[in-house]
Write a protein that binds this DNA or RNA. Structure first.
Ligand code: FES
Ligand code: FES
Lengths: 165, 165
DNA sequence: CAAAAGTTGACTGAAACAGTGGGGTATCAG
DNA sequence: CTGATACCCCACTGTTTCAGTCAACTTTTG
């Protein structure tokens, strides 16, 4: 089992996407700025998310990504499965044969743990996360800090400042 | 968060140790044979387990390792903590500052998950595992397969066969 | 058409994992 | 005393994954 930045980034990005869904398609450059994730790395992750049909893409100017389904039916476990190999904690991938074809002493323990984690992450949907008050607050601060590039007229100096940090 | 062979091996080895505790100190070579874990690798793991006082060692011929405490009070979470860095699932190690000092969108989710895993692994002790019927059965088969080198008189040819597989 | 966006693939440095090897040192049986 | 047995310690290595970069596409809109 492994849970690293990869899975965390994927969930963060999808949550950002869900929060800004009402403003039309969201492009990766915005997510990259707001969440501090490398743009190229995001592209890799979204390629996998698209293959799992968790998001769909709209190409061309004004395009971006949209959620593939309703936020209520997107579970955290599915997001992690899409980018990571799985949250399985056993060595044998549940086959029970990691010791020369025999079941090892601790197989059942890891199987129970896997089930526990999967149930937990499977019980939480994107909309559950959006509903949490702390998350709303954090998202607003992030929007404010990056000054909403879409609604007002774009200001060249300000964009340059954003890119050059 | 990561849960790999390292933590699994540590739990497996300690469980083997607990099962064979009634026959005096258990040496690593026996654990290595029974559980199919590299001897040198086991030594590294036991160095850490000893530092955490989960086991104590007896040197010299007839020596080996013994549990540092009663099996009831050794929790799986402690074993994994001893060899692995931790089962924390957050990026910030619980500090809430992984985005340039600010709390990231998904911090609370990972914190909840960490707590969930820690509670689960912290609620299970070595003696809980020993009590499970499947584990008793598997341990008996392992003992049988490796022919109990201690009780009967040692047979040169048989030992050679074991070493040469 | 040109610019904005997504799409794809190859590539990289760093870290961790899983394991090997070789030299120790304490202890006990004979 | 001596040598075998076991733990102890440290340096090293091949492989994999992560996290990220770079460059060259294609599609779509204004
Ligand atoms: S983890 Fe499944 S048999 Fe060992
Ligand atoms: S995981 Fe704690 S702040 Fe991001």
């Amino acid at each position: 089992m492994r849970l690293t930045t990869k899975g965390r980034y994927a969930v963060t990005a999808l949550l950002d996407l869900a929060i800004h869904a009402d403003q039309g398609p969201v492009n990766l450059a915005d997510i990259s700025r707001r969440q501090g994730i490398s743009l190229s790395y995001l592209e890799q992750l979204f390629a996998k998310l698209r293959r799992s049909e968790l998001v769909c893409s709209i190409r061309g100017p004004g395009g971006g990504y949209r959620l593939g389904r309703k936020p209520q039916s997107i579970r955290i476990a599915q997001i992690i499965d899409a980018v990571n190999e799985s949250v399985d904690a056993t060595k044998c991938q549940g086959k029970g044969n990691c010791q020369q074809g025999e079941t090892c002493l601790t197989h059942h323990l890891w199987q129970d743990l896997s089930e526990q984690i999967h149930d937990f992450l499977g019980s939480i949907s994107l909309s559950d996360l959006i509903a949490r008050s702390e998350i709303k607050r954090i998202a607003q601060q992030q929007d404010k800090r990056h000054e909403m590039l879409t609604p007002p007229e774009l200001d060249g100096a300000r964009i340059a400042a954003t890119f050059l940090q």
